[in-house]
Design a protein around this nucleic acid. Structure first.
Lengths: 345, 345
DNA sequence: GTGAAAGCGCTAACAA
DNA sequence: TTGTTAGCGCTTTCAC
C-alpha cells in the first residue's frame, strides 16, 4: 500500500541529490547547507512527503506510538481516560493504539503481544479482572519496555502508577450513606484479585468500623467478571435481597457494576432509594438523568489518562534507566443525588 | 524496542541454515523438506519467535491491520460498532487501529493520514459532521485503498456502505409520536451535510406529510457539531421552547444529541413527556433506567461493525478490483418507553 | 557540504 | 531442497 507514495528516493532523484543528503536535510542536520535544506524541505512540503513510519521504526527500533490496554472502551470511565491519553500523546508527537481485554486474561496477553510486535515504545495498562498472574508484563518490563499502570494496578511490578484514592472514595460514599440514615450497607465489587477492589473494600470496611458497625461478610459480593456477566451480578443482588436483615443500601464498586445494578433493580421492581439506596463508582454523564438520579463517586478520568501518559513519556524519553517510581493518587469526588436520599426526616 | 527479540537470522544461525530457508520453512513453503520445516517450526515455537510486523509490512506493503475512524468512542453506538469490527477482524487475523475525529474535519484528515502511514490495508470510516469535502478520501480510494463507509457515508464516493434504515427509523418514531397524540413535533439533528441527517430528516418529514401535517421549518434545528457542543444544543432547545405553538414532542437524531437533550431538559425543569415528549436515536444501555425511560430508535451497532468489516476484508482479499459496490441497509428498532407516553387517555 | 554504503528484519526471485 | 542476493524506506557512519 503506497498511497501518496513519495519517498526520500523520489526527492533525491528529482533534486539530483543523494538519499542521505535528503534524509539529513529533512532532519535538519548541521552538515547540510541552508540552501539545500530549503530546497529539500520545500520540495517535500509541496509534494506532501511523509516519512514511512514502518521504515523508520524498523531502522530506529521505536515507533513513536504507545499501546493502551483497557477492559472495554464501551465504558465512560475508560473512554474518558483514553481521551486524556490521546491528548497528551498527540501533544508530544506520539500516536496511541487502543486495545480491549474485555476482562479476559487471554485477550490481555494476546493484545499485549500484538502491541509489542507493533513496536510500541511504551504501554499503558489497566489489568483485566481475570488477570491474576502478571508474569507476561513483568518479563516485558525487565526487557526494557516502559510500562505505566493506571486504574487496576499490580503490586508485583514496580513502575509508575496512576490511581485514584479508592479507599477514600469508598469511605466517603459509605459515610454519606450512614449519615443519610442507612444502616445495612452492602457492597458489590469485582474480582478479589484486583487492587481497586481491595482498596474500595477497605474504604467501605473502614467507614463501617469507624462508625461502630459490624462488617457483615454476607453483605459483600464479588463479581469475578466485573459485572460484564449480568448473571453473576443478578445472583449477587438476589442473594443480598434475601439476606437478613435485608440491606437498605448498596455501594457498587465500578462503572459497569453500578449501571448494571441499577438496571437489574429496576427490572426487579426494587425501588431506589425507598427499598434500597444506591451509591456507585461511575463516570457516566447520564448520572443526573437516571431514575433516580445517581449518587456517584466520580474519578478524574481525563486527568488519569493524561498523567499516566505524561509519566510514560518521561520514562521513554529518559536518558537513564528509571529506578524511582511514583505512585500518583488523584482524588475522587462524591456527587450526591437522589439515589441515596436521606432516610431521616 | 526488541523484546523477545529472536529474529529469523538467529534461528538460521543456530540451526546452520540460511535465512531464506528459515523464512520459507516458517511460511510452510513447498520447496522446503518436511524435516527442515519441523526443525525450524519447533525451534521457533520453543523460542517464542514472532515475525516483526514492521519488517513484514515494509517488505510486503501491507500490514494485516485495518484503520477505523469514528467521531468518538465515548458513545455507546460507536463502541458497539467497534466491538463488531474487532470481532470480525480478529477472526480473520487482522488487527484494528482505532482513531477518533471528535467531529473535526482537521482531525479526520490527520487521523486518516496517520493510518495510511501505518500501512493499513483498508479503512472503515464514519465521516465527521464537520466534513463537507471528501477529497482526501477519494484520492486514497483512487490510489487503491479499500474503504468501507458506515453510519455517516458519502454519496460522492463509490464503495461498499453499511447504514441503517435511517429514513424508516425516523419515520417510525415520528409516526409513533403522532399515534400517541403529539401534534407539534420538533426535530433536532446534526449538520445538514451529513447523509444520516438528511435521511432521518426525510423520514420525519414523510411521516408528517403522510399524516397531513404541515412541516414547520422552525421546528427543525441543526447542530453543526452534532451535539458535542452543548451551547448550540441549548440554543436550539431554547428557540424551540419559544416557538409558537410550542412543540409537544422532540425527535432527536443522534446518540449524543439525544442524551444531551435529555440532560438539558432536566436542567431547565421541562418535564418529559408532560411538557415535551422525547424520542431519540440512541444505543445507550441505560435507556430503561433513565428518567423517564427513553423511547429510542436502536441501531444494530455490533452487526453494522461486523458487516462493514466483512465487506472491507472481501475487498482487501479480492483478486480483481471491485467495481460493483453494495449498499447494505440494516433495520432499526423502535423501543417504546415512557418518554413518549401517550397523551390520549 | 555531499554522497556511498551498510543495515534494521523480512520476503522472494534466482542460482546452485 | 537449500542458499545467495536484492530490496522494502529510512538513518547513519564514514569517506570524499
Amino acid at each position: 500500500m503506497n498511497f501518496d507514495a513519495i519517498t526520500i528516493r523520489d526527492i533525491a532523484r528529482e533534486l539530483h541529490l543523494s538519499v542521505s543528503t535528503v534524509s539529513k536535510a529533512l532532519r535538519d542536520s548541521y552538515e547540510i547547507s541552508e540552501k539545500t535544506k530549503k530546497l529539500v524541505t520545500e520540495f517535500a512540503q509541496k509534494h506532501n512527503y511523509r516519512p514511512n513510519p514502518m521504515a523508520q521504526s524498523l531502522k530506529k527500533g521505536h515507533s513513536k506510538s504507545i499501546g493502551i490496554v483497557v477492559s472495554s472502551i464501551d465504558n465512560q470511565f475508560f473512554s474518558q481516560v483514553i481521551n486524556g491519553m490521546e491528548s497528551e500523546a498527540y501533544s508530544q508527537g506520539y500516536n496511541v493504539i487502543i486495545t480491549q481485554s474485555h476482562e479476559s486474561y487471554e485477550l490481555e496477553v494476546q493484545n499485549v503481544g500484538h502491541l509489542i510486535h507493533r513496536a510500541i515504545d511504551g504501554l499503558l495498562i489497566s489489568i483485566a479482572t481475570e488477570t491474576a498472574d502478571v508474569e507476561h508484563l513483568r518479563r516485558l518490563q525487565q526487557q526494557g519496555l516502559p510500562i505505566v499502570f493506571f486504574d487496576r494496578v499490580s503490586n508485583e511490578i514496580d513502575t509508575h502508577k496512576v490511581i485514584v484514592d479508592n479507599l477514600g472514595g469508598a469511605y466517603q460514599a459509605t459515610m454519606h450513606l450512614l449519615a443519610s440514615g442507612y444502616k445495612n450497607i452492602a457492597h458489590i465489587t469485582s474480582s478479589v484479585t484486583s487492587s481497586v477492589t481491595n482498596q474500595r473494600l477497605a474504604g467501605y470496611v473502614d467507614a463501617l468500623v469507624e462508625s461502630g458497625i459490624e462488617v457483615n461478610e454476607q453483605y459483600i459480593k464479588y463479581c469475578l467478571h466485573g459485572g460484564l456477566n449480568l448473571d453473576e451480578l443478578e445472583q449477587a443482588i438476589d442473594e443480598l435481597m434475601q439476606t437478613e436483615p435485608r440491606p437498605d443500601a448498596i455501594l457498587t464498586a465500578s462503572d459497569r457494576i453500578t449501571t448494571s445494578t441499577m438496571t437489574l433493580l429496576h427490572k426487579k421492581n426494587i425501588r431506589i432509594p425507598q427499598d434500597v439506596a444506591l451509591v456507585g463508582f461511575s463516570n457516566t454523564v447520564l448520572a443526573d438523568v437516571l431514575n433516580p438520579s445517581l449518587t456517584s463517586v466520580h474519578q478524574p478520568a481525563f486527568e488519569i489518562g493524561r498523567k499516566a501518559t505524561e509519566m510514560l513519556l518521561s520514562i521513554i524519553n529518559s536518558k537513564r534507566p528509571i529506578t524511582e517510581f511514583e505512585n500518583v493518587v488523584l482524588p475522587t469526588e462524591l456527587f450526591i443525588r437522589s439515589s441515596s436520599a436521606s432516610k431521616l426526616k
